[in-house]
């Protein structure tokens, strides 16, 4: 810091410099103390990241050996936190498969079982709550989302005069969320599933703004999953526990469907309203629906996103 001397009457040199030195040290020290103290909340930081995680490469650049190391790291971290040894795998897409989901609006009764089966299968945070599926209660005769009720809680469903429309990631062929991601942390796989590399996402939430279906969810804080509800069958792009500050969303239960199983939301549906399969297989249920059911809707078709999620009716 420079000395403060009125040019008209300079005081004796030594005295001022000593006094000003003390004064300057005092203000510098107090300023530094305040700066250090302002960082006090960082004391509570635990398990935010690790050297391995910080330096980890993008999913598509990992060699099989590196991927194995990453999977081991994830298993280790899960075991440390939950004292359960998970089975973490990286399932690859199958050749000749394009997943499609069909949902029968005539059958859905709005029981929200799919919502909670999904939460259980995919290790979503229970508090704050992260849910991939939103069930809309809509008055008969309208698809106007603005008239939808998200928080219905009657004694029993279905209610007269309404139909129910579960909405989750539509796995668009032309996904706006993928286009806007500045770091390619989300992309479309060959089997049609749009996935997120939770270890690459920077949490800018641009994809959340871009999604026309309110399908993406952000980890606003550390997710919390009760130990007894942890699903230990995990996959890298799927249901492994996420960290604070990253996006997640429905991935058609990649850890189930890439092993040939049906997704969890389908398995729990009491009304059989949900149908899933390989659209490229003419014998599949979804191929039958797309061929034989006359009325089906792709939500917000006018946006050109071309969802792989079809709503249909029994007529």
């Amino acid at each position: 810091m420079s000395d403060q001397k009125p040019p008209s009457a300079p005081p004796p040199f030594g005295e001022v410099s000593r006094r000003s030195f003390l004064r300057n040290s005092a203000i510098l020290a107090s300023g530094a103390a305040a700066l250090a103290a302002s960082l006090a909340p960082l004391r509570e930081l635990s398990n935010y990241t690790s050297v391995e995680l910080f330096l980890q490469k993008h999913y598509k650049e990992l060699t099989p050996a590196e991927m194995q190391k990453v999977l081991d790291r994830i298993a280790r971290e899960v075991e440390q936190q939950y004292h359960i040894r998970p089975r973490v795998r990286d399932y690859k897409p199958m050749d000749g498969v394009e997943f499609v989901y069909c949902l029968n609006l005539t059958r859905c009764i709005g029981c929200r079982k799919c919502v909670h089966a999904c939460v259980a299968e995919n290790n979503q945070s229970r508090n704050p709550e992260i849910q991939y599926i939103r069930v809309l209660k809509m008055p008969h005769g309208s698809l106007d989302m603005e008239r939808a009720d998200h928080n219905y809680a009657p004694a029993s469903v279905p209610e007269k005069g309404f139909f129910y429309m579960p909405v989750q990631c539509q796995q668009c062929k032309n996904p706006p969320c993928v286009k806007v991601c500045p770091v390619k942390a989300t992309w479309q796989e060959p089997d049609g599933i749009t996935v997120i590399d939770y270890d690459w996402c920077i949490g800018c939430r641009y994809c959340e703004a871009a999604c026309p279906y309110f399908a993406r969810r952000f980890n606003w804080t550390k997710p919390s999953i009760p130990k007894e509800r942890l699903n230990p069958e995990m996959s890298y792009l799927g249901n492994r526990p996420r960290r604070q500050g990253v996006m997640e969303k429905c991935h058609f239960c990649i850890q189930r469907t890439r092993q040939g199983k049906y997704p969890a939301c389908l398995e729990v549906c009491p009304a059989g309203a949900r149908k899933f399969g390989n659209a490229l297989d003419p014998e599949s249920e979804v191929a039958y629906i797309l061929k034989n059911k006359r009325v089906f809707i792709q939500l917000k078709e006018e946006l050109g996103t071309s969802p792989r999620f079809f709503y249909y009716f029994d007529v």
């Binding site: 910080f54 993008h58 770091v183 390619k184 690459w200 920077i202 800018c204 604070q244």
Partner: peptide, 20 residues
């Protein structure tokens, strides 16, 4: 300050990260 993972800021640096 709007980033959820400020520690991954380097993913945004062209050349080092993966710039879309």
């Amino acid at each position: 300050v709007d980033l959820g993972r400020p520690d991954r800021f380097w993913h945004l640096i062209p050349g080092i990260g993966k710039f879309n």
